[in-house]
């Protein structure tokens, strides 16, 4: 039986049906997503001598800055219970994963803009290829984390087995936020700028480079900040220290699954609208 497509002004509002189509396209476009990710990664490394160094340079740089601030006594950081360099690197690494995950959907969609206005292909592949690229970059960063763990004598713990789960959580939650912002972010470049801008500040109300203070306003803010459990759970698993904020983490993780699916549906509805506005 031949496939029939109908295009008309009314958008289909049947969310379960749209979701089914979206997931079907997601499944159908596995090869395309893989190919796009492979294309971007190979191209990126082929034109570079330092190659994968660039994947972990930013979190490493932030970590070094704070290690220096701490060791020189410029900033007094309360004892974290583990060697500070490991603590701060684990933090900045998780933070860089969250940041990259939030920007990934807009970035991937933007890079596919040229093709989107010419060829009809499953756009979900763009999101998927963004996630694949994130997974690739993340695994490189994790190797560096292992090096830190060993060289500062923290060693391996059973919690490390659950660490991938925490990272997947970071990627999923970040992607959900990013994907929800994509429709409006494709129309206005302000959205990407605002994301980049606010992530710089949000880092200081999240226990990335220092732990949650015992008292004060900062403690309250950090406790409510939904990014806190991602960083804390991820780091505690990696360093083998007792878990905190596990319930909050599970709630956010659980909530982001349906939200992600909903965002996929919105994304699907929005694509013709921004293709029309940006390539007329």
């Amino acid at each position: 039986m031949m496939q029939t497509r109908i295009y008309q002004k009314e958008t289909n509002r049947n969310i379960p049906k749209l979701l089914k189509e979206s997931l079907r396209d997601l499944n159908k476009s596995r090869f395309l997503a893989f190919q796009l990710a492979k294309r971007d990664i190979t191209a990126q490394y082929r034109q570079s001598y330092l190659g994968i160094l660039w994947a972990f340079a930013p979190p490493l740089a932030t970590a070094f800055v704070w290690m220096f601030l701490n060791s020189s006594g410029t900033v007094k950081i309360t004892d974290t219970g583990v060697p500070y360099p490991v603590y701060v690197f684990a933090g900045t690494l998780l933070w860089s994963i969250i940041t990259a995950s939030i920007t990934s959907p807009i970035q991937s969609t933007n890079s596919g803009k040229g093709i989107m206005s010419k060829i009809n292909f499953p756009k979900e592949a763009l999101i998927m290829s963004g996630i694949l690229k994130l997974l690739f970059n993340t695994s490189i960063k994790v190797i560096l984390l292992f090096i830190f763990l060993f060289s500062y004598g923290v060693g391996l713990s059973w919690g490390l087995l659950l660490f991938p789960f925490a990272m997947l959580g970071a990627i999923l939650i970040g992607n959900t936020i990013g994907l929800l912002l994509t429709p409006i972010g494709m129309l206005y470049t302000d959205v990407s700028k605002i994301i980049g801008f606010s992530m710089q500040f949000l880092m200081y109300v999240t226990p990335v480079v220092y732990s949650i203070p015992e008292t004060g306003v900062m403690r309250t803010v950090m406790q409510y900040n939904p990014l806190t459990p991602i960083v804390v759970v991820g780091r505690n698993l990696a360093l083998g220290i007792p878990l905190e904020y596990t319930t909050y983490f599970l709630i956010i993780f659980g909530a982001s699954i349906p939200l992600f699916l909903l965002a996929l549906v919105f994304y699907r509805i929005s694509i013709p609208i921004f293709v029309e506005r940006l390539s007329a």
Binding site: M2, I6, Q8, M116, V275
Partner: peptide, 19 residues
């Protein structure tokens, strides 16, 4: 090609569409 939606009217395409 299904890249943008019409404001009026309807398009029915049957089979594999290539552009």
């Amino acid at each position: 090609n299904g890249l943008i939606n019409p404001d009026e009217g309807k398009v029915v395409m049957r089979g594999r569409v290539s552009a």
